[in-house]
Design a protein around this nucleic acid. Sequence first.
DNA 1: CACATACGCAACAGTCTGTAGTGTAATACG
DNA 2: CGTATTACACTACAGACTGTTGCGTATGTG
Lengths: 207, 207
Amino acid sequence: MTTRGPGRPRDATRREAALQAAREILAEDGYAAVTIAGVAERAGVARTTIYRSWPTKGALVLDAVTELMDLGPAAKSGDWHADLLAAIEGSMRALSRSVAGRTIPALAVDLSRDPVLAEEFRTRFAQPRKREVVNLLERGVELGFVRHDVDLDLVEDILVAPIVHRLAVTGAPVTESMVHDLVGLVVKAVAPDPLRPGAAADTFQPG
Amino acid sequence: MTTRGPGRPRDATRREAALQAAREILAEDGYAAVTIAGVAERAGVARTTIYRSWPTKGALVLDAVTELMDLGPAAKSGDWHADLLAAIEGSMRALSRSVAGRTIPALAVDLSRDPVLAEEFRTRFAQPRKREVVNLLERGVELGFVRHDVDLDLVEDILVAPIVHRLAVTGAPVTESMVHDLVGLVVKAVAPDPLRPGAAADTFQPG
DNA sequence: CACATACGCAACAGTCTGTAGTGTAATACG
DNA sequence: CGTATTACACTACAGACTGTTGCGTATGTG
């Protein structure tokens, strides 16, 4: 997009070396242990080179972990409940990876004081997963599994927040069965009122 | 409890001055801005005196904010749903206070690498509120508002985590109506199955 | 009284930050 | 080709914070 101007271009090799060094330190000792100086040394790169590309430690780590958070393709088995469960389980697994689980919360907290980076963080991490889940919920509305008056943003929070909360704050275990129960409760919470069981499922046409 | 031994006793005045200074810095610039050196200077106390009482910044801040998190007496209006809503709204308001809302998540993340302090943190903050809510949920089971097979710990997470998550991570607004909707969804999720509407309420005797 | 501890003060080495200057390499433009 | 522009490594610097030590003084116990 930006046509390259004059001058020597940035060396992608050094950039990648810095990001890789940051990832290694993150994996070994966590976010607090990451320093510009430490990353530069491990990457075999001058400190000033790091500062040229990233103004703060937060910006560097944000770039470093972005790729760790790519979520696989959205499941589309045709079974709405299974797809929803699969989506949340996918988020859970991504967050449970030791690096991400320890880094993301710390990064979020650290970036919260920088409005620009905080917005960047949300755009890269929260938004993509959020969209996937909200899309699923919107389909749930169409399929009759979710009431029309439900705040889907709130439901998305309810599905994801407990997982993050346990990983970052309480340290309570996050298991597949916990996620299963969580999704089960939410499905029940948003379901149309009395409704003879299976009615919505009958209306649904697989494929 | 520990009978005072020989030697000059600690000066409670200086201790309180340090905690107060820490609170002020927290309120002004947040957790990241707190340093032992800065607290000592503002408190008018020697740096070594701080180190004598608190080994790390985290331990100091933990003590400093403990009193900020006292939750009022548990509501007992007799209306179970109202009491549950009041409890969650109470947590919400406590966390929304600017100091606590910004400090607690940062503290939780920072302390997560120190097992001893992390446990201390949970005991002081998470546990008391958790017990209050879980107690309410247990009464809900007795009253027929909550199914017997529901994991109450999980429900408690679902009630609290979205609030913390919005405050700390996404920055999304946390309003009374959001809390109202949240509690409403959870109540529906845990309610006994088909249930002619109002049955449990009919059984319930106010007072 | 002696003893033990708290406190303030000073000093220290170590680390990290953020900036600046120097010399050299790599690229764009005329 | 030469010049301007930028990237990079290296060095240096001032400033802040950490964690510890030593010293002199204050304040308690026995």
